[in-house]
Protein backbone atom coordinates (compact mmCIF):
# COMPACT_ATOMS: atom_id res chain seq x y z
CA UNK A 1 0.00 0.00 0.00
CA UNK A 2 1.37 3.39 -0.92
CA UNK A 3 1.40 6.31 1.44
CA UNK A 4 -1.73 8.39 1.61
CA UNK A 5 -2.15 11.90 2.92
CA UNK A 6 -4.51 10.57 5.61
CA UNK A 7 -2.08 8.30 7.38
CA UNK A 8 -1.47 9.09 11.00
CA UNK A 9 -4.97 10.39 11.68
CA UNK A 10 -7.67 8.23 13.26
CA UNK A 11 -10.20 7.06 10.67
CA UNK A 12 -13.82 8.25 10.72
CA UNK A 13 -14.96 4.73 9.88
CA UNK A 14 -12.91 1.75 10.90
CA UNK A 15 -14.11 -1.69 9.82
CA UNK A 16 -12.20 -4.51 11.47
CA UNK A 17 -12.29 -8.07 10.20
CA UNK A 18 -16.07 -8.39 9.82
CA UNK A 19 -17.77 -11.66 8.92
CA UNK A 20 -21.38 -11.44 7.76
CA UNK A 21 -23.77 -14.27 6.92
CA UNK A 22 -27.04 -14.72 5.07
CA UNK A 23 -28.42 -17.60 7.10
CA UNK A 24 -25.64 -20.15 6.80
CA UNK A 25 -24.00 -18.57 3.80
CA UNK A 26 -20.74 -16.95 4.77
CA UNK A 27 -20.81 -13.75 2.68
CA UNK A 28 -18.00 -11.61 4.13
CA UNK A 29 -14.74 -13.32 5.08
CA UNK A 30 -13.08 -10.78 7.31
CA UNK A 31 -13.34 -7.37 5.66
CA UNK A 32 -11.21 -4.57 7.07
CA UNK A 33 -11.22 -1.05 5.75
CA UNK A 34 -10.82 2.55 6.83
CA UNK A 35 -12.43 5.73 5.66
CA UNK A 36 -10.89 9.01 6.75
CA UNK A 37 -12.69 12.31 7.20
CA UNK A 38 -13.16 14.14 3.91
CA UNK A 39 -12.25 11.22 1.66
CA UNK A 40 -14.04 9.45 -1.13
CA UNK A 41 -13.26 5.78 -0.73
CA UNK A 42 -14.53 3.27 -3.22
CA UNK A 43 -15.24 -0.41 -2.93
CA UNK A 44 -15.11 -2.12 -6.30
CA UNK A 45 -15.64 -5.71 -7.32
CA UNK A 46 -17.82 -7.85 -9.49
CA UNK A 47 -21.37 -8.93 -8.87
CA UNK A 48 -21.71 -10.97 -5.69
CA UNK A 49 -18.29 -10.01 -4.35
CA UNK A 50 -19.88 -8.70 -1.14
CA UNK A 51 -19.93 -4.96 -1.82
CA UNK A 52 -23.56 -4.43 -0.87
CA UNK A 53 -23.26 -6.82 2.06
CA UNK A 54 -20.43 -4.67 3.38
CA UNK A 55 -22.59 -1.55 3.08
CA UNK A 56 -25.56 -3.30 4.69
CA UNK A 57 -23.37 -4.41 7.58
CA UNK A 58 -21.90 -0.94 8.10
CA UNK A 59 -25.37 0.59 8.07
CA UNK A 60 -26.75 -1.84 10.63
CA UNK A 61 -29.27 -3.57 8.37
CA UNK A 62 -27.16 -6.69 8.94
CA UNK A 63 -24.97 -7.39 11.93
CA UNK A 64 -21.57 -9.03 11.65
CA UNK A 65 -21.23 -12.37 13.39
CA UNK A 66 -17.58 -11.55 14.02
CA UNK A 67 -15.47 -8.42 13.86
CA UNK A 68 -16.21 -4.82 14.73
CA UNK A 69 -17.12 -1.49 13.16
CA UNK A 70 -16.14 1.81 14.73
CA UNK A 71 -17.37 5.28 13.89
CA UNK A 72 -15.07 7.90 15.37
CA UNK A 73 -13.72 5.22 17.69
CA UNK A 74 -17.13 4.15 19.05
CA UNK A 75 -18.41 0.66 18.24
CA UNK A 76 -21.55 0.71 16.07
CA UNK A 77 -21.79 -2.87 14.81
CA UNK A 78 -24.48 -3.91 17.29
CA UNK A 79 -26.69 -0.86 16.88
CA UNK A 80 -30.05 -1.20 15.09
CA UNK A 81 -30.13 0.43 11.65
CA UNK A 82 -32.50 3.25 12.61
CA UNK A 83 -30.13 4.59 15.26
CA UNK A 84 -27.20 5.03 12.87
CA UNK A 85 -28.58 8.14 11.21
CA UNK A 86 -28.26 9.94 14.53
CA UNK A 87 -24.60 8.87 14.58
CA UNK A 88 -24.07 10.51 11.21
CA UNK A 89 -24.37 7.66 8.70
CA UNK A 90 -26.82 7.95 5.82
CA UNK A 91 -27.04 6.00 2.63
CA UNK A 92 -28.39 5.79 -0.86
CA UNK A 93 -29.04 2.05 -0.94
CA UNK A 94 -28.75 -0.45 -3.75
CA UNK A 95 -31.88 -0.33 -5.88
CA UNK A 96 -32.51 3.26 -4.68
CA UNK A 97 -35.36 2.26 -2.37
CA UNK A 98 -37.12 5.61 -2.62
CA UNK A 99 -40.67 5.71 -1.25
CA UNK A 100 -42.67 5.35 -4.46
CA UNK A 101 -45.98 6.66 -3.15
CA UNK A 102 -44.60 9.66 -1.35
CA UNK A 103 -43.97 12.86 -3.28
CA UNK A 104 -40.42 13.88 -4.12
CA UNK A 105 -40.43 16.56 -1.44
CA UNK A 106 -41.84 14.15 1.16
CA UNK A 107 -39.08 11.69 0.32
CA UNK A 108 -36.54 14.43 0.97
CA UNK A 109 -38.25 15.30 4.24
CA UNK A 110 -38.09 11.66 5.31
CA UNK A 111 -34.34 11.90 4.80
CA UNK A 112 -34.36 14.61 7.46
CA UNK A 113 -36.71 12.63 9.73
CA UNK A 114 -34.63 13.03 12.87
CA UNK A 115 -33.97 16.73 12.36
CA UNK A 116 -36.17 19.40 13.93
CA UNK A 117 -34.54 22.51 12.47
CA UNK A 118 -37.26 23.39 9.97
CA UNK A 119 -35.54 26.40 8.42
CA UNK A 120 -32.30 24.48 7.92
CA UNK A 121 -34.20 21.52 6.44
CA UNK A 122 -35.80 23.90 3.97
CA UNK A 123 -32.38 25.26 3.07
CA UNK A 124 -31.01 21.78 2.55
CA UNK A 125 -33.94 20.92 0.31
CA UNK A 126 -33.03 23.97 -1.79
CA UNK A 127 -29.43 22.73 -1.85
CA UNK A 128 -30.55 19.34 -3.14
CA UNK A 129 -32.68 21.08 -5.77
CA UNK A 130 -29.68 23.16 -6.81
CA UNK A 131 -27.68 19.98 -7.25
CA UNK A 132 -30.53 18.14 -8.99
CA UNK A 133 -32.79 20.67 -10.74
CA UNK A 134 -34.90 17.81 -12.15
CA UNK A 135 -36.13 17.03 -8.64
CA UNK A 136 -37.35 20.57 -8.17
CA UNK A 137 -39.39 20.39 -11.37
CA UNK A 138 -41.05 17.25 -10.06
CA UNK A 139 -41.24 17.98 -6.35
CA UNK A 140 -44.98 17.31 -6.08
CA UNK A 141 -44.97 14.08 -8.09
CA UNK A 142 -45.03 10.61 -6.56
CA UNK A 143 -41.43 9.41 -6.50
CA UNK A 144 -42.50 6.16 -8.17
CA UNK A 145 -43.32 8.08 -11.35
CA UNK A 146 -39.74 9.36 -11.76
CA UNK A 147 -37.30 7.88 -14.27
CA UNK A 148 -34.48 5.66 -13.04
CA UNK A 149 -31.94 8.46 -13.14
CA UNK A 150 -34.24 10.84 -11.28
CA UNK A 151 -34.92 8.18 -8.66
CA UNK A 152 -31.16 7.82 -8.18
CA UNK A 153 -30.85 11.57 -7.73
CA UNK A 154 -33.69 11.44 -5.21
CA UNK A 155 -32.07 8.59 -3.28
CA UNK A 156 -28.83 10.57 -3.05
CA UNK A 157 -30.61 13.81 -2.17
CA UNK A 158 -32.65 12.02 0.46
CA UNK A 159 -29.49 10.64 2.08
CA UNK A 160 -27.89 14.12 2.04
CA UNK A 161 -30.89 15.50 3.91
CA UNK A 162 -29.66 13.74 7.04
CA UNK A 163 -26.49 15.90 6.86
CA UNK A 164 -24.39 12.78 7.30
CA UNK A 165 -20.73 12.77 8.26
CA UNK A 166 -20.42 9.57 6.26
CA UNK A 167 -22.47 9.06 3.13
CA UNK A 168 -22.77 5.49 1.83
CA UNK A 169 -23.55 5.25 -1.87
CA UNK A 170 -24.41 1.78 -3.13
CA UNK A 171 -24.20 1.42 -6.93
CA UNK A 172 -25.41 4.94 -7.78
CA UNK A 173 -24.71 4.38 -11.49
CA UNK A 174 -26.57 1.11 -11.82
CA UNK A 175 -28.95 0.94 -14.77
CA UNK A 176 -28.36 4.54 -15.85
CA UNK A 177 -27.70 5.87 -19.34
CA UNK A 178 -24.00 6.72 -19.87
CA UNK A 179 -24.63 10.46 -20.02
CA UNK A 180 -26.38 10.26 -16.66
CA UNK A 181 -23.58 8.18 -15.18
CA UNK A 182 -21.11 10.99 -15.91
CA UNK A 183 -23.45 13.47 -14.32
CA UNK A 184 -23.96 11.37 -11.16
CA UNK A 185 -20.21 10.96 -10.65
CA UNK A 186 -19.71 14.65 -11.21
CA UNK A 187 -22.23 15.34 -8.46
CA UNK A 188 -20.67 12.81 -6.09
CA UNK A 189 -17.43 14.71 -6.45
CA UNK A 190 -19.19 18.00 -5.81
CA UNK A 191 -20.90 16.68 -2.67
CA UNK A 192 -17.47 15.68 -1.41
CA UNK A 193 -15.61 18.87 -2.25
CA UNK A 194 -18.33 21.50 -1.75
CA UNK A 195 -20.02 20.10 1.34
CA UNK A 196 -17.04 18.23 2.75
CA UNK A 197 -19.02 15.02 3.11
CA UNK A 198 -17.02 11.83 3.53
CA UNK A 199 -18.18 9.20 1.05
CA UNK A 200 -17.91 5.44 0.85
CA UNK A 201 -18.83 4.54 -2.70
CA UNK A 202 -19.65 1.03 -3.86
CA UNK A 203 -19.49 0.63 -7.63
CA UNK A 204 -19.40 -1.86 -10.45
CA UNK A 205 -18.26 0.93 -12.71
CA UNK A 206 -14.69 0.66 -11.46
CA UNK A 207 -13.19 3.15 -13.90
CA UNK A 208 -15.45 6.03 -12.94
CA UNK A 209 -15.30 5.21 -9.25
CA UNK A 210 -11.48 5.05 -9.15
CA UNK A 211 -11.21 8.32 -11.04
CA UNK A 212 -12.95 10.28 -8.31
CA UNK A 213 -11.84 8.24 -5.27
CA UNK A 214 -8.87 9.05 -3.06
CA UNK A 215 -8.49 5.39 -2.24
CA UNK A 216 -10.08 2.11 -3.27
CA UNK A 217 -10.53 -1.43 -2.08
CA UNK A 218 -11.01 -4.38 -4.43
CA UNK A 219 -13.40 -7.01 -3.19
CA UNK A 220 -13.48 -10.60 -4.40
CA UNK A 221 -15.66 -13.38 -3.00
CA UNK A 222 -16.14 -11.64 0.31
CA UNK A 223 -12.48 -10.72 0.87
CA UNK A 224 -10.42 -7.63 0.12
CA UNK A 225 -7.73 -8.61 -2.35
CA UNK A 226 -6.21 -5.23 -3.07
CA UNK A 227 -6.20 -1.71 -1.68
CA UNK A 228 -4.41 1.41 -2.83
CA UNK A 229 -4.97 4.97 -3.96
CA UNK A 230 -7.52 5.41 -6.71
CA UNK A 231 -4.84 6.51 -9.17
CA UNK A 232 -2.62 3.53 -8.38
CA UNK A 233 -5.49 1.06 -8.74
CA UNK A 234 -6.30 2.53 -12.14
CA UNK A 235 -2.76 1.58 -13.21
CA UNK A 236 -2.86 -1.85 -11.55
CA UNK A 237 -2.62 -4.72 -14.06
CA UNK A 238 -5.03 -6.99 -12.26
CA UNK A 239 -7.60 -4.21 -11.90
CA UNK A 240 -7.20 -3.24 -15.54
CA UNK A 241 -7.77 -6.80 -16.70
CA UNK A 242 -10.57 -7.86 -14.43
CA UNK A 243 -12.52 -4.72 -13.69
CA UNK A 244 -11.76 -2.34 -16.50
CA UNK A 245 -12.23 -5.04 -19.10
CA UNK A 246 -8.89 -4.58 -20.79
CA UNK A 247 -7.59 -7.51 -22.78
CA UNK A 248 -3.96 -8.52 -22.72
Amino acid sequence: MTDTPTQGKAPLLHVEDIHSYYGNIHALHGISLDVFEGEIVTLIGSNGAGKSTTIRTISGIMHPRQGAIYLDGAPIHNLPAHTLVAHGIAQSPEGRRIFPRLSVIDNLQMGAFLRRDKAEIQRDIENVYALFPRLKERHRQFAGTLSGGEQQMLAMGRAMMARPRLLLLDEPSMGLAPVLVDQIFEIIKRINTEQGTTILLVEQNALMALEIAARGYVLQSGSIVLSDTGAALLENDMVRKVYLGEVG
Binding site: I61, H82, R97, L102, D106, Q109, A162
Partner: peptide
Protein backbone atom coordinates in the same frame (compact mmCIF):
# COMPACT_ATOMS: atom_id res chain seq x y z
CA UNK B 1 -45.56 10.39 6.38
CA UNK B 2 -43.21 8.16 8.34
CA UNK B 3 -46.05 5.64 8.67
CA UNK B 4 -46.56 5.67 4.91
CA UNK B 5 -42.83 5.41 4.33
CA UNK B 6 -42.58 2.42 6.66
CA UNK B 7 -45.57 0.82 4.92
CA UNK B 8 -43.89 1.21 1.54
CA UNK B 9 -40.41 0.04 2.52
CA UNK B 10 -39.67 -0.86 6.11
CA UNK B 11 -35.93 -1.26 5.61
CA UNK B 12 -35.55 2.03 3.76
CA UNK B 13 -37.58 3.72 6.50
CA UNK B 14 -35.12 2.42 9.08
CA UNK B 15 -32.30 3.91 7.00
CA UNK B 16 -33.99 7.32 7.47
CA UNK B 17 -33.74 6.90 11.23
Amino acid sequence: KAMRAAAQDREAAAMMG
